[in-house]
Amino acid sequence: MTLRCLALDGSGPLGGVALLEGDRLVESTSCPEGSGFGVTLYARVEHLLTQHHVTVADLGLLTVTLGPGSFTGLRFALGLAKGMALVHGIPILGISTLALQAEASQGNHPWILPLRDAGQGLLFFGLYHALADGLREVIPPSMGRLADMSARLQATIPGETPLCCGPGVATHLEGLETMRCHVPDHPHAQPSAALLGLMGLNRWRHGAQPAALNLEPLYLRPPQAQMQRLASGT
């Protein structure tokens, strides 16, 4: 029987839900900005499943974004996914928002650097290596200033020019232009929930271990006091 996968992305600002049967996309919807992803998520999932005559028990896999991203959106999506997984015994896989962004943005570049703005001059970033069998995480999701990121890149891939992508590029464009990296004309390809589902299915087939109870949002932001020290560079 074909594996049915439900993908939930709450990292915002555009949240999304997708249903896949094997590699075939059944339907993918996104919640327009401002509609309140948390409020509409349950209704959207219910509508999507009912529309295609699928019950929660029919699902073979759940894929959900872990972050970094919207504080509340991630909790809503993960909470719903964990609830369904626990009640119906469905395997669940979590994928970082940066890995999803890297997957959406890869072209011919071997090194991909997804970025999200973290405010106060900080960035969420990760580094991914595009190989024949998929992306490999080289720098896990991290938070820091542009200079910190630059130093880590230098230490990890000296002399290489990674491709920047994601919504953080526009905010930090000025700084990025002084760094050794490639900034494309349209750096922000919005990843869809369908892509999230495909990534989940792919990882599942390659033996990724599911989790449910111990799956937590990937919050990189430390407590406020520590955060302020980080921002001030002290």
């Binding site: 401002g34 504080f71 959106g73 973290a118 919504p167």
Partner: peptide
Amino acid sequence: SPGDPLVAARSRWLESQEINAF
């Protein structure tokens, strides 16, 4: 009011940085 565009945008912006806007 979460319907106010300035409030809504600031809330979304904080949330995107993993900050609980509420």
